[in-house]
């Protein structure tokens, strides 16, 4: 499945592949550390840029309370 913006697609595919492998082989066996954080960070940087360009960032943070999300908007001060 393509990413919302073509430029992020290769990183998304890489993350999806890494995640499903980690999920089935490690997470379901009790692992608490995500093996795919490096590629996730790269994918996130690409995606966040695109969401901002498309003007979706505010809409997303506004919708968070309705779904009980624990995540907050880290725009501008991403975890280092």
């Amino acid at each position: 499945m393509e990413s919302i913006s073509k430029e992020c697609t290769p990183l998304k595919h890489e993350y999806d592949a890494c995640f499903t492998k980690w999920y089935s082989e490690k997470f379901l066996q009790g692992a608490k550390t995500n093996d795919c954080t490096k590629v996730f960070k790269q994918y996130q940087e690409c995606l966040k840029r695109v969401l901002k360009e498309k003007g979706l960032t505010k809409m997303i943070s506004d919708a968070r309370p309705a779904i009980g999300s624990v995540f907050a908007d880290r725009d501008g001060d991403e975890k280092k």
Binding site: M1, K12, F19, K32, F40, L47, S69, F71
Partner: peptide
């Protein structure tokens, strides 16, 4: 058409 992962972590 598109599914993007915005955030993902494991609660330690």
């Amino acid at each position: 058409r598109h599914v993007e992962i915005l955030n993902q972590d494991v609660d330690p």
